[in-house]
């Protein structure tokens, strides 16, 4: 035991004497490591802020998006459009899915309202959220939907609008501002009231 314990320390002192010149506290490598770690944490922080990013607010600008319509559900014969194409119209943007039970409660209402307002400068646009095309088409046929409809390709639109689930409805005014947000199935009274309010402006 004894022979081991005396050994390391004997050499320690010699080495201590040899390497007594203290190097600078901050070397380029250390600085780089520090900056790297700081950058990583900053990035994480930003990610955090970003992920808690608020949804579009009523009165705020509507996030832009591009849609590629389902065959037979185009808008003015175009296969795709962006939000800007709808400028000057009221857009009722409705997120739905065929697997969503509550969406069925509002499906007829949406179609009826579209038929009532389609010539008054109101556009209805359905966006199917994580839905498979055959099922979506089945749903659209089942409810005789005639307004433009599109899949939410790559989930980009639902993400831009920060939806919390389906159904969710955003009413965008003629100037491209979000005028009204509704979570869950919308009621007839609310829908008419909101559209009429915008039409009067």
């Amino acid at each position: 035991m004894a022979e081991i314990s005396t050994n390391p320390n004997a050499t320690t002192d010699e080495a201590q004497a040899a390497a007594d010149v203290s190097p600078p506290l901050v070397t380029p490598l250390r600085a780089a490591a520090l900056v790297g770690l700081f950058a990583l944490l900053a990035l994480l922080g930003w990610g955090l802020v970003n992920s808690n990013r608020s949804r579009p607010i009523e009165g705020g600008p509507a996030p832009r998006f591009t849609v590629q319509y389902y065959d037979g559900y185009e808008w003015q014969g175009k296969t795709s459009s962006t939000l800007d194409d709808f400028a000057g119209q009221i857009v009722v943007l409705n997120f739905w899915a065929s697997w969503c039970v509550e969406c069925r409660y509002e499906a007829d209402l949406l179609e009826d309202t579209w038929r009532a307002y389609r010539d008054k400068g109101v556009l209805f646009l359905g966006v199917a959220y994580v839905d498979v095309e055959p099922k979506s088409r089945g749903y659209l046929t089942e409810f005789n939907v005639t307004y433009p409809n599109a899949p939410d390709l790559r989930g980009l639109i639902s993400k831009a609008y920060g939806i919390t689930g389906v159904p969710e409805t955003f009413i965008i005014d003629q100037q491209g501002q979000v005028a009204y947000i509704h979570i869950g199935p919308i009621t007839e009274q609310t829908l008419y009231q909101q559209i009429d309010r915008l039409l009067q402006n």
């Binding site: 390391p8 320690t12 080495a15 201590q16 040899a18 390497a19 203290s22 190097p23």
Partner: peptide
């Protein structure tokens, strides 16, 4: 600098 360990 306090951590300077001269071991090997």
């Amino acid at each position: 600098d306090q951590f300077k360990s001269s071991h090997h």
